[in-house]
Nucleic acid binder design. Structure first.
Length: 277
DNA sequence: AGAGATGTTAAGCG
DNA sequence: TCGCTTAACATCTC
């Protein structure tokens, strides 16, 4: 379940492996994964060189030398791997990019939730998810003023608010539970009732958590692995996620697990007090 | 064997 | 029009 730090780890790995490589030929095994006809997809990428791999939120952006960008979202289970040409593809391999050096870049996805979109450079805003993405969770992009403004007018619960990628980009279920625990905010707290001091703390924790998780090469909870098939290390640093029934690291109370906005949600019932309208 | 897990978005509602 | 909620997507794990 890749969130921003995991996608960033994948981006770094793929940059090392295939940046500068040229695609000879593309195989589309599962056409529902892409937003154009398979023939258009193949013809647009055949013979093109990958000049850069960028990231925006949880989206990977492969830049090609013909002003085309391949936008890739891994959703729940998407993974890339690079193998020698001719080795048997996995059961869940849906797209194969044959490179010009006896290697293949493969996209694997056991749930088939991942999506790829082919666009002309500059058309990012036309895609439904990418086009409405909020700021990156960084010191520069996620300002206190912006966060305060959108939080003050939101009447919903803070957890789904933070999961909404149009508010800010990159957080998923795991990191939202983590930053709310760090900020001592209950996941069901009404967003507009959160004080300025708490917003400041929440903002700092989001920015720090993303930085640290990237440094730890992401979190492997279920099945995430980077382009080298390696697991992340950050799961060892998690404070609440997956710790149901275990003692809170701050106060010793048992961590509880409930469902908020259809998501498994972990919190400390003593440290994180619910404030609702 | 059936429930649960997970990210995103279209559709529905007020 | 906007913001929030719900369901759907597809498959594997427990």
């Amino acid at each position: 379940m890749p969130e921003l730090p995991e996608v960033e780890t994948v981006r770094t790995g793929l940059t090392n492996l295939v940046e500068g490589s040229t695609i000879n030929r593309v195989e589309v095994i599962y056409p529902k994964m892409i937003n154009v006809a398979p023939e258009v997809f193949k013809n647009s990428l055949a013979g093109r060189k990958i000049i850069k791999i960028d990231r925006r939120g949880k989206y990977l952006l492969f830049r090609f030398d013909n002003n085309i960008t391949l936008v890739s979202h891994l959703r729940m289970e998407g993974k890339y791997d690079v193998e020698t040409e001719g080795t048997a593809p996995g059961k869940h391999t849906h797209i194969i990019f044959h490179l010009n050096d006896d290697r293949e870049l493969r996209y694997n996805d056991s749930r088939k939730f991942g999506r790829m979109y082919l666009i002309h450079n500059g058309e990012e805003h036309t895609l439904s998810g990418l086009g409405t993405l909020g700021p990156e969770p960084t010191e520069q992009d996620l300002t206190f003023e912006y966060l305060k403004k959108i939080m003050n007018k939101s009447r919903g619960k803070i957890k789904p608010f933070l999961l909404n990628q149009s508010h800010l980009a990159g957080l998923g279920n795991i990191y939202v539970d983590e930053v709310l625990w760090m900020s001592k905010i209950h996941p069901e707290t009404t967003t507009s009732l959160i004080s300025d001091d708490e917003i400041k703390s929440l903002r700092n924790n989001i920015i720090e958590e993303m930085k640290n998780a990237i440094k730890g090469h992401g979190t492997t909870v279920h099945s995430y692995s980077n382009a080298y098939g390696e697991a992340g290390q950050f799961q060892d640093k998690l404070k609440v996620y997956g710790r149901k029934g275990q003692p809170c690291f701050r106060c010793g109370s048992k961590i509880e697990k409930t469902v908020v906005a259809q998501r498994g949600t972990h919190f400390c019932p003593k440290c994180q007090i619910k404030v609702i309208k």
